[in-house]
């Protein structure tokens, strides 16, 4: 829009309105712009959070709106923290979180390191590698259940070919031992490209002259890797770990589609258990307390981690 057009609009503005706007201070105008956003933030984020904290001290059930709501104090928190089944869910979550991050960081960094080298078909390979993360988790979960199928699943056939066993002699998602690893494998397959992209950004941000200086100083490739590449990519890697950690702590769709939390409750992550408590059993008060505990855990861990990340950046 040209100045002339703006001038025309200004001329068309009724004098009464123009005077009012002219009379507003900069601060008032700032509030005018920021106000709606703050209102939405309060309505959508802050109020539900406060309401959840309140509900966590009650026996409220969303499916019984007419039932009297009783204040139960810390009973919900006490029940959750002393429930051995919930600690098993936490263990399953920790196992999933730890191993997915380890594999994704190692493989993601290795892939980024390879892709960063200039070779023919580099762009094509990058595109192929990032394809899995473009898929819907529900779709990924669904087709991996077929890949893991003991009788017809491709995964079983490939593994059986290498270990010389019958494909139907093991069950990835039906076995207590293998099921936790089956979800780790799928998440790693899907999200390693994300870590790779972040690492790639880190690798490409390292100026060539640093390596040239190292070459002049006759530093070996091994030494260049450990003293230049790794330290300079580390903040990026830590950022990737933070993103993946937060994402996987609340992992739901992929695992539900893949194992439904089974066999038994072996892969029932905290988020799956929380959903069952909140929207299948309708224990709203109890599940609010559960959600608050998970929130505090993630928030606490993320805060500590961000501090560590800032320290690494400052170095």
């Amino acid at each position: 829009m040209t100045d002339t057009a703006i001038d025309k609009i200004a001329q068309r503005t009724p004098t009464r309105v123009a005077r009012k706007v002219r009379g507003l201070s900069d601060r008032a105008i700032a509030w005018l712009f920021v106000g709606p956003t703050i209102f939405l933030l309060l309505a959508i984020n802050i109020f539900p959070l406060i309401w959840t904290v309140y509900l966590s001290f009650t026996n409220f059930r969303a499916n019984r709106p007419n039932r009297e709501v009783e204040w139960v104090g810390l009973r919900n928190y006490e029940r959750i923290l002393t429930d051995s089944d919930i600690w098993l869910n936490m263990q399953a979550t920790a196992h999933f979180l730890f191993w997915t991050i380890v594999f994704q960081v190692l493989i993601g960094f290795a892939l980024a390191y390879l892709i960063n080298k200039k070779f023919r078909g580099n762009d094509l390979w990058t595109t192929i590698i990032v394809l899995p993360m473009m898929l819907s988790p529900a779709v990924v979960g669904n087709f991996w259940t077929f890949l893991y199928q003991p009788q017809i699943g491709l995964f079983n056939y490939i593994i059986a070919f290498f270990i010389g066993a019958d494909p139907s002699s093991f069950e990835m998602i039906g076995s207590v031992t293998l099921a936790p690893w089956s979800i780790v494998i799928v998440d790693t397959w899907m999200w390693t490209p994300f870590v790779m992209l972040i690492c790639l950004a880190g690798l490409r941000s390292i100026p060539d002259y640093i390596y040239e200086a190292a070459e002049i100083d006759r530093a070996s490739k091994w030494r260049q890797f450990w003293t230049i590449t790794v330290p300079m990519v580390l903040p990026f890697l830590m950022l990737a770990v933070l993103f993946r950690g937060i994402e996987n702590f609340k992992m739901f769709d992929l695992v539900v589609q893949l194992t439904g939390g089974g066999p038994g409750s072996i892969t029932e992550l905290a988020s799956i258990n929380l959903k069952r408590e909140a929207f299948e059993k309708w224990r709203t008060g109890y599940s609010s307390a559960y959600a608050i505990i998970l929130f505090v855990t993630v928030f606490g861990l993320a805060s500590i981690y961000v501090k560590a990340l800032n320290k690494v950046k400052e170095r």
Partner: peptide, 23 residues
């Protein structure tokens, strides 16, 4: 019972834990 969903989910968990997951 009105709380049938809770009763059912509890049984689903206990049975699956024992029968399929061998716990």
């Amino acid at each position: 019972e009105p709380a049938y969903a809770e009763l059912l989910l509890a049984m689903q968990k206990r049975l699956h834990d024992y029968i399929v997951a061998d716990q």
